[in-house]
Structure formats: structure tokens, C-alpha cells
């Protein structure tokens, strides 16, 4: 059994040796949102191919988890950049500052439209955000304006012009950034169109928030898991159901799914880009300025991200489903990034 001991010894020496030689990091590390992941990875791969440097490692941790890791500190132990499917919050910025991450450069990447989709075989639906809210909120204003448990079973009960079918919407679980966007872009906006709730917002903002942040739990809203492809497959199997996910999945599955017009606007590349399709969000990547020059290639990576070939109007990211910024805004954003302008904490929400 001497052999066994010698194996252990060799292993221990090997591990110790490899730790000793672990030198300064020469590879960019990025964490954050799974929504931005498909785009950042494409940029990372291209950067690795064209720069001759190591391809950056991109982790998919979710926006909130990414921010936490990103704000933990400065140094090669900590990630250099984080993906976010929303702007950084004031609280997160304060957390960053506390840990010494003071200068943060923001890359506005582009838009992602949040779409409601259905199988091509189903009866085409036209939705307003108000009706979306009424279909899925846990509590809705009753006849006297007081909140009651959501009574609607079929779409036609909300609005007679909608089909006489059971309400069934498949969407992301609470852990997903897409779910946050769904609440903000659909539920909150929809709730504000109802006079009784608008009044409530003026009187009791917290109670109002609770209304648009609660979804019904009686089977009308089905949590389909983090994986948007699962929703796509379920919609194909059930033409009466509707699904909520990012525009890139709708574009990729255009042969099977149709986008539901929201407030009369069909989600397309053009309507999201020019802002006529309302439920869309901005996607960001945040970079630590303190790491520029320390981690090789970080500034070049940022430059690649804002270049016309990547996030420009006909860049390769648009082929991956990203809706690019209008040309002027893109030029502006690119200029700010190339100059490494840092964000101002006072302007955050």
C-alpha cells in the first residue's frame, strides 16, 4: 500500500505546486445576467479570435447575483465586468462604493423587447397592458374600486373582444431577471391604466407596489422555469396558451410562434428599436475602471463591444437577436465608453 501513499503525496505536491505558480490573471472575467449572456459571449468569442488574447470567461449568474460579485471589491480576485438586464440600482452602487469599486463604466448595449407570444395555430390575440394586468394580477379592483381576488377565468370576461378561452400564460420564475421586467413593463404599466389603482398609487405607494408585484397562484400563470426554450416547446404543444420571453427567442422561432401585439404594436426589430413597442428594456454591461490596464485587454474588450461591427445597426449582435440602439444613441454611448466616462451615483434610482 506504499503506492497509495505515494499517490497521495504526489497529488498533494502537485496541487501545492500549481497553487504556487498561479500568477497574475491574464483573462477577463465577466459575471451577471443570463439575458445579456448570449450577447456578451458572442463579443467575448470574437474578441478572443481577433485580439489573440485569451477568450474572456463569461458566467451566467443573474443580474442581482452578478452585481453582488462585481461589487465585492477591486483586485484580480473579483470579476472585471458584469452583465445586467436593467440599470445598476442606487443601493448596488452604494454597495460597490463601500467596497472600493468607485469608478464604473457603463456600456449601454441595446434593447431587448419583452414579448408575449403564442403558437401560430392559435386564435390571434391582441392585448393591452391593462388587460395583461387584469388577466394575471392576484388582486384586481372590483366594481366598487376595492381590491378583490382575481375573478377572471377566460380572456373574454376581461374584454369581450378577446377569445373565449381559458387564461393560461407561461412565464419565468421569480429568480429570473425577465420576471422583474415582466412586472415592471407589463404589470405596473397596466395597473397605472386603471383609475382606481392610479389613485391608490397616490395614496399608498407600497400597497400599489404589492398589487402589481403579485401574480395569481390559481394556475392562470404557470412558472415554466428559467429556460425560455421550455416555454417555446410548451406553446407549440398548447396553441391556447401564451408565453412571456425575450424578443430573441421569438425571432429565432418565427416559424412556429407569433408575437402578440401589445397596445396595437407588433413586436418586431423595428418597433422595438424606434420605441413604439413599449415593453422593452435596456441591456447593460458594467466595467470596473480600476481594472483597465491591470487586466490585459479589458479596454479593448469594451471597445469591441461598442464597435459598429458588434453592437452597431448591422453588427453581429443583431444577428443574435439584440435590438441595437438607434445610430445616434449608439455613437454617443460608444464615445462615452471609449473615453472611459464613469457613472454618476446621484443620478441612479
Amino acid at each position: 500500500m506504499n503506492k497509495l501513499f505515494s499517490t497521495v503525496a504526489i497529488a498533494a505536491i502537485g496541487i501545492a505546486a500549481s497553487l504556487g505558480t498561479a500568477s497574475a490573471r491574464d483573462q477577463i472575467r465577466i459575471v451577471g445576467s443570463s439575458t445579456v449572456y448570449p450577447f456578451t459571449t458572442a463579443v467575448a468569442e470574437n474578441f478572443g479570435k481577433t485580439s489573440g488574447m485569451k477568450t474572456p470567461v463569461v458566467e451566467s449568474t443573474g443580474t442581482g447575483g452578478g452585481m453582488k460579485l462585481f461589487c465585492e471589491g477591486v483586485g484580480e480576485k473579483f470579476p472585471d465586468a458584469t452583465n445586467a438586464s436593467r440599470a445598476i440600482k442606487k443601493s448596488e452602487f452604494a454597495d460597490c462604493n463601500k467596497n472600493g469599486v468607485k469608478d464604473i463604466v457603463e456600456i449601454l448595449v441595446g434593447f431587448d423587447g419583452l414579448t408575449v407570444a403564442q403558437a401560430k395555430a392559435g386564435i390571434p390575440l391582441k392585448l393591452s397592458r391593462k388587460n395583461f394586468f387584469l388577466a394575471l394580477a392576484k388582486e384586481v379592483p372590483g366594481a366598487d374600486g376595492k381590491l378583490v381576488a382575481n375573478p377572471y377565468k377566460n380572456w373574454s370576461e376581461i374584454d369581450p373582444s378577446l377569445p373565449n378561452e381559458k387564461i393560461e400564460v407561461l412565464g419565468p420564475p421569480p429568480t429570473s431577471g425577465t420576471r422583474d421586467s415582466m412586472h415592471e413593463l407589463f404589470m405596473e404599466a397596466g395597473a397605472l391604466e386603471i383609475p382606481a389603482l392610479k389613485e391608490l398609487k397616490g395614496k399608498d405607494a407600497k400597497a400599489f407596489e404589492a398589487v402589481w408585484k403579485s401574480l395569481r397562484e390559481d394556475g392562470a400563470y404557470v412558472e415554466a422555469g428559467e429556460n425560455d426554450n421550455v416555454i417555446v416547446q410548451k406553446l407549440e404543444a398548447n396553441p391556447k396558451a401564451f408565453g412571456v420571453f425575450g424578443y430573441s427567442f421569438l425571432e429565432e422561432n418565427a416559424s412556429k410562434l407569433a408575437g402578440v401585439p401589445i397596445d396595437g404594436v407588433v413586436p418586431t426589430f423595428e418597433t422595438i428599436s424606434d420605441g413604439t413597442y413599449k415593453p422593452s428594456r435596456e441591456l447593460y454591461v458594467y466595467i470596473k475602471k480600476a481594472h483597465v490596464g491591470v487586466i490585459p485587454g479589458l479596454d479593448k474588450f469594451a471597445a469591441e463591444y461598442v464597435s459598429d461591427t458588434a453592437s452597431g445597426e448591422e453588427g453581429y449582435l443583431s444577428e443574435k437577436g439584440l435590438v441595437p440602439l438607434p445610430a445616434e444613441r449608439h455613437a454617443e454611448a460608444a464615445k462615452a465608453v471609449l473615453a472611459m466616462e464613469t457613472i454618476n451615483g446621484d443620478k441612479l434610482k
Partner: peptide, 20 residues
């Protein structure tokens, strides 16, 4: 492995136990 950062997009083929 999610917690220790192995759920990630990695293009380069790892050459040892400390490579991503």
C-alpha cells in the same frame, strides 16, 4: 458548480487544474 463559477462560457480548452 454554479456557486464556484463553473457555469460559464469558456472557449479555451483548459490545460490544467487551475485554468477556467
Amino acid at each position: 458548480l454554479l456557486m464556484i463559477g463553473m457555469v460559464a462560457f469558456i472557449v479555451d480548452i483548459p490545460g490544467g487544474i487551475t485554468d477556467a
